[in-house]
Simulated scan of single mutants.
Amino acid sequence: MTLADPAALILAGSRGGEDPVARYAGVTDKALIPIGTDTMLARVTAALRNAGIERIGVSANSPAVRTEAARLGTEPLPAAAGPSASTADALALLGAPLLVTTGDHALLDPTWVNDFIARVPADADVAVLLARRDAIERAAPGSKRTYLRFADGDWSGCNLFYLATPQASQVIALWQSVERDRKRPWRIVRRLGPALLLRYLLGRLSLSQAVAHLGRTAGVTAAVVAATDGLAAVDVDKPADLDFVRARLG
């Protein structure tokens, strides 16, 4: 897929209260957790730059994270009430195409970024990278992730989204409702409607069919890209994830 040079957004806002992973690591904010000699935010920023992305915004409500974002030469942006609202604000400011990831994606690799963008269908307004359970279990045995079960396998998110066109803004309202239910997959599936829900319950609905339907509901063309590396689904949500990442990176 040949597009204008994308900008990128790193979501590094706090959900409120003390983050248990930050506490475990002995820092104030998860994005500031040291991985080797770098913060997680620095690692994510470096991966995006090595993928050829020059303009990078960091959405954060912590003064310490915003200071780190400025030190890294990115654009500190105020965080909104949640990731989807922060993404809406960033899309309005940075424009499309916009790659969206998170500040706790410590293993992010520039080859994943470039491969994802290259495989976004030409007609897609928005695309999401997901990984199959078998790929994740091969790459990260023992890692506990949240899965959606479909006819073509069990899938988990990779915290990589591509807003290819300005029309992608239409999907953000749907994203906000999905965001509220991210740990309750059955509520996400319920949005498919009776006919597709029945196909899902009978094990006859593929993930790509479900995402395409949800996209049409939002008035956009939405697509799924399958991750080539199961590690792309590993972010730092729990202390065990941090231990895994640090061990993986030596």
Rank of each mutant, 00 (worst) to 15 (best):
222 A>D: 06
145 R>Y: 05
186 W>Q: 09
36 G>L: 04
240 A>T: 07
196 L>K: 15
51 A>C: 09
217 T>G: 09
80 A>N: 08
125 D>F: 07
167 Q>C: 03
85 A>R: 15
215 G>F: 04
128 V>A: 15
145 R>M: 00
199 R>I: 01
102 T>M: 06
7 A>W: 09
146 T>Q: 13
188 I>T: 10
101 T>S: 15
24 Y>V: 05
60 A>L: 06
3 L>V: 13
2 T>Q: 14
130 L>N: 11
236 V>I: 15
109 D>I: 08
131 A>M: 00
167 Q>T: 09
178 V>N: 09
224 V>C: 07
231 L>I: 04
219 G>E: 04
54 E>V: 09
12 A>C: 13
248 R>S: 13
238 K>W: 13
79 A>W: 00
97 P>D: 05
116 F>E: 06
69 A>C: 00
9 L>S: 11
198 L>A: 15
75 E>H: 10
109 D>M: 10
64 A>F: 05
177 S>N: 12
181 D>H: 11
80 A>G: 03
219 G>Y: 12
138 R>G: 12
13 G>S: 07
221 T>Q: 14
162 Y>P: 12
216 R>G: 08
9 L>N: 06
206 S>F: 00
212 A>L: 06
169 S>F: 02
42 A>D: 09
228 T>P: 03
50 N>Y: 02
23 R>Q: 15
16 G>E: 00
152 D>E: 02
73 G>T: 08
238 K>H: 15
102 T>G: 07
144 K>A: 09
223 A>M: 06
118 A>V: 01
126 V>W: 15
111 T>V: 09
205 L>C: 03
156 S>Y: 01
228 T>A: 15
122 A>P: 06
168 A>F: 12
202 L>Q: 13
212 A>E: 08
164 A>M: 05
105 H>E: 03
57 G>W: 12
157 G>E: 02
183 K>R: 15
210 A>H: 04
117 I>V: 15
8 A>F: 07
30 K>S: 13
129 L>M: 15
164 A>T: 07
60 A>E: 02
93 L>M: 11
150 F>P: 02
242 L>F: 06
238 K>I: 00
66 R>W: 01
166 P>I: 04
196 L>H: 12
224 V>Q: 01
234 V>W: 12
226 A>I: 02
159 N>W: 10
132 R>I: 00
234 V>D: 12
15 R>F: 05
6 P>M: 02
212 A>K: 05
226 A>H: 07
158 C>T: 11
70 A>G: 10
106 A>C: 12
52 G>K: 14
56 I>A: 03
106 A>F: 08
225 V>D: 09
94 L>V: 10
125 D>I: 02
39 T>G: 06
50 N>A: 10
94 L>T: 14
16 G>R: 02
103 G>E: 01
197 L>H: 14
8 A>W: 03
88 A>Y: 05
204 R>F: 01
165 T>V: 11
237 D>C: 10
93 L>H: 13
175 W>L: 09
109 D>T: 06
140 A>T: 03
